[in-house]
Amino acid sequence: MHALAGAYALHAIDDDGELRLFEEHLSGCAECAQEVRGLAETATRLGLAAAVEPPPALRDRIMAEIGQVRQLPPLVAPSPSIRESRSSAERRSPLAGWLRWRPRLAAALTATAVAAAVLLGVVAVRTQAGLDELRATDREVTAVLAAPDVRSATAPSGAAGGTVVVSRSQGKMVFVASGLASLPDSRTYQLWQIGPEGARSAGLLRPDGTGHISPVVSATVDGATTVGVTVEPAGGSEQPTTQPLLLLDLPQA
């Protein structure tokens, strides 16, 4: 296990399971964590030696984008009551593992504009397809996208990727995903909203032949901080029963 310290510092572990195991090991081994810190600083020096001045326009683009990106609050220890309810949620849910890994997985937020464009693209394709019965959903999707307080988050996760767009004023979120492999009839993808109180189903997802799903609109659950996708028996489950394929930080207002 310890031998992985170098590969870890170089970001050369490409297996998520192995990465988690090593990080778990690190959290219980102060000496290893200390070594990894030194090796990560060393790897950084490799990067510094490669410095190249970026084009000036990049600075302007970045300064413009940060004006539209909400900052994360600091990590704080949960209050006793939340810790209590979270640990009971963890006991009954395989999502427990991920809640601890959220900071790493949270590293995926793209500009709202990009996500909205993706969603609108999906909506447009569907409209062209003339699927009348889906127009009601389209209107709901459009209402969320047009809300003044719309926020989005996107995560690639291996082959699968997802985007969630949320409007707190509308009390709704829209979720789309791609790269979802087809499942046997006995199985379905299920979307969850997860908070300190545990997970609540946000509906079943039916990917088309190319792994895309149509936008799914659901009401936001108070306190939900994360959305996730799991594979469940056909018809869905009360609570997630498998490890999630996809996890996204739900943007807060």
Binding site: A3, L4, A5, G6, A7, A9, L10, A12, Q34, R37, G38, L39, E41, T42, A43, R45
Partner: peptide, 21 residues
């Protein structure tokens, strides 16, 4: 071997560069 070389290579580099631990 690769895992080990990544680790001991970085350790040697760290010591040569005088990276603070």
């Amino acid at each position: 071997t690769v895992k080990t070389r990544m680790r001991d290579g970085l350790i040697r580099l760290r010591d040569c560069l005088g990276v603070e631990r």
